[in-house]
Simulated assay, not measured.
Amino acid sequence: MDFAFMMAEQRIKDAIQKGDLDHLPGKGKPLKLEELSTVPQELRMGYKILKNAGYVPEEVQLKKEMMSIQDLIDLCQNPEEKETLKKKWTEKSLRFNSLMEKRRMSSSSAFGMYRDKIYKKF
């Protein structure tokens, strides 16, 4: 564990012992966790900030559209319409995979370039 983590943990424990956290809204209720498992760990905070600002990244929008199209495909009875929906899903899937591949390549190289500089700042 690093020093900052240990200090944060100690401050949280002190606040709990003092009772500073007893009157927070939502106390005793389960946390509402967001599903960010598909987002690389180093990008999650940025995504959360963008989401709070009302911006949805293109890959998230594509993933939602793909899920909606898949639901329509599952319910569709018309073979021609089903084929059209499958083509749309394939187009969205290709675009999504392309974006994710670019993201993997750029995030690993971009982060790698600045990783040492970032760690030195801490």
Rank of each mutant, 00 (worst) to 15 (best):
T38K: 12
L62E: 01
R104M: 03
R95K: 12
W89Q: 15
Y47L: 05
R11V: 05
M113W: 08
S109I: 15
E58S: 03
S68T: 11
K18C: 04
M1V: 11
S93G: 00
F5V: 11
C76L: 00
L21G: 02
K32P: 08
P25S: 00
A110N: 13
P30C: 02
D2C: 07
K86I: 03
S108L: 10
I12R: 09
K32H: 11
P30T: 03
M67K: 14
F111A: 13
L72Y: 13
P79T: 04
M100T: 07
L75E: 15
L31W: 04
S98N: 14
E58T: 08
K27Q: 05
S98I: 01
L50S: 08
R44P: 01
A4G: 13
E65L: 10
E42W: 01
M66F: 07
K92S: 09
I73C: 06
A15M: 00
M105C: 06
L24N: 09
V39T: 02
E80G: 02
G26K: 00
D20C: 03
E58W: 04
K88G: 00
Q77L: 05
E59I: 02
S108R: 15
L99I: 08
M105H: 11
G28T: 01
L24D: 03
E34F: 06
E101Q: 12
T38S: 15
S106T: 15
I49F: 07
K92R: 13
G28C: 03
E80A: 10
G54E: 05
F122Y: 12
Y55S: 10
A53T: 05
I16A: 04
Q61R: 15
K13W: 07
M113D: 11
K51L: 08
L43F: 06
K117D: 08
K32G: 04
E65Q: 15
I16P: 00
M7F: 09
A110W: 10
E42P: 01
R11F: 06
F122Q: 06
F5C: 10
L94I: 10
M113Y: 09
M45A: 12
L36H: 06
M67C: 05
E35V: 09
M67I: 09
Q17F: 04
M6H: 13
L24Q: 04
A53L: 15
K92Q: 14
D14V: 12
H23Y: 00
G46M: 03
Q61K: 15
Y114A: 08
I73E: 09
K64Q: 00
E35W: 06
E81S: 09
Q61E: 14
K18S: 11
L62K: 05
L31T: 10
K120V: 07
A110K: 11
G46P: 01
D116L: 02
Y55H: 14
E42S: 06
L33P: 03
K32Q: 13
L99E: 03
I16V: 14
L50H: 01
K102A: 11
I16H: 06
E58F: 05
L99M: 06
S68C: 03
D20A: 06
M113S: 11
S107R: 06
E42F: 02
L99G: 02
E42T: 14
K13G: 02
E65F: 00
M100V: 11
Y55I: 15
D22F: 03
M66D: 00
Y47T: 00
K27Y: 03
